[in-house]
Amino acid sequence: MENLKLELKAKIIENLNLEDIEVSDIKNTDALFGDGLGLDSIDALELIVMLDKDYGIKLSDPKQGKVIFESIDTMAAYISENKTK
């Protein structure tokens, strides 16, 4: 699980072009949206694509993202339970 969390941090930085942020800057419990990393609605869509492309998870209801993408912890837990590749 810890490896997955590190992998997610690296992917988020790369896929969302967070040039000024290092993996070590993101805590597992940090809010990804709002006051945390400050991600926006386009970033949320990008994360949905990432789940599909890299882990074979299709979110049928985008509203699920609000809970899944709350933090690295919540993302990692959801991916561990639902990944198909």
Binding site: L16, N17, I42, D43, L45, E46, V49, D52, K53
Partner: peptide, 9 residues
């Protein structure tokens, strides 16, 4: 087929 929303915008 994985279009990137961040590119599309």
């Amino acid at each position: 087929y994985f279009p990137s929303p961040a590119i599309f915008v």
